[in-house]
Design a protein around this nucleic acid. Sequence first.
RNA 1: GCGAUCAUAGCUCAACUGGCAGAGCACAGGACUGUGACUCCUGGGGUUACCGGUUCAAGCCCGGUUGGUCGCCCCA
Length: 448
Amino acid sequence: MIQPRTPPGTLELLPRDQLAFQRMQQTIREGFERFGFLPVETPVFEYSDVLLTKSGGETEKQVYFLQSTGALKEGKAPELALRFDLTVPLARYVAQYENQLAFPFRRYQIQRVYRGERNQRGRYREFYQCDIDVVGKDTLPLAYDAEMPAVIAEVFRALDFGPFTIRINNRKLLNGLLRGAGADTPEKRAAALREIDKLEKAGEQKVRDGLTGPEIAMAPEAIDKLLGFMRVGKGDPAVVLAELAKLDVNDELFKQGVAELNTVIEQVGALGVPSGTVAIDLSIARGLDYYTGTIYETVLNDFPGIGSVCSGGRYDDLAGLYTKSKLPGVGLSIGLTRLFFQLQEAGKIKPVENPCAAYVTIVDPELGAECRAMATELRQAGLNVELAAEAGKLGKQLKYAEKVGIRFAVIYASQEKARGAVQLKDLRQNSQRDVPRTELAAAIKSTT
RNA sequence: GCGAUCAUAGCUCAACUGGCAGAGCACAGGACUGUGACUCCUGGGGUUACCGGUUCAAGCCCGGUUGGUCGCCCCA
């Protein structure tokens, strides 16, 4: 026999947990639509060259390639690959349908993506991303950078997993600062950003070591200044912005970043995002290279261990490899699979009750037709109803109904027929009573 | 790609220094002649991941293989 098992890094659920998962997904979908975003789906696999353009070395190592066995035998390079995020397919999509889309193009996309990761807790190789993005033509107002946190705030409010914090930062600000601190090439700055991103997890000393290392080689005084800066640049937006205004940094990029951050924070407030849910955090950097301005990370305050459950940012020219048009965008992605898994582990996800309201049993074979008719009546009354396939032991049928979590059992056999009623049994409350057949649906509805 | 750790029934785990491979849960049947969830009884289930070695004797000791898990890198 073959061991029944799933490859590691995949999430599979029992039906009632699956319902809970889908309910979360639905809440997210409704939140996105509340802001006027429209759905899009793209294929799970794409041409390899389309997918790999912008990825860079690290991501490419994690890409699953797809190849027919025929091509494999001929030793050909794989033509297809599984998508590893939804942003790159979006770029392709926008470039491909550019002349049919209205700009700014607002879409949401909730689909699975694939990454060849090493096994690790809460890390998946197949997982859901829930993306929203706005893509502009030539330009995209900063107002959209402010809309993103507003959408996310609404979604996480509706998901109801307690308080959360949307952390905001700006790459320009960081890059300007790093440039002033001696990271004079884009490569050095990218490496420095990755170091800074570790600040919370690894601590100051580790980051200091990384920044002094051969790759970046930043001067100790510059690092002191930078880390000091990170310390004040965290928390209440008004306070951080006031601190930033006081700083005397003579760098255009830095100043532009600060100005953008000011605008975004101001507009986020105007969009009704509760104060306290948004914070500035200059230490978040996001590993992905394509972000150029605003960047976001969201954490659940009660579950700091989960890490960022939603992140994204602004990218000036993502579709540059697919079209000559300049298409700047800003977007965010919720990592639903990990979020669900971690919350479930923390006991915050309860299996959803079986939406099937009643199980119609069949005890006497000669009354089977009437039982079947009764199930149909209940369904026509708008109830979800499961029906026994054939007459059998009542105990077995009740046990089954109990196990799948159906609350009511309907029993109609010779005794009930003699009494001229139907027995309605509440398996949860351990009670039963006779109900006229015509009032059965109403009786079930009134208790649910 | 690197490191650590583990592998016994469908699941969770026992088995002393190497000495007959077990329990709970789950499943099936019964106690209960139309009544689940509680209680009691009975039952099926195993090449102890795989291959080799040491030994009178290996689940246990040694070597290898495969796989899982947890970290690093990176990320949702």
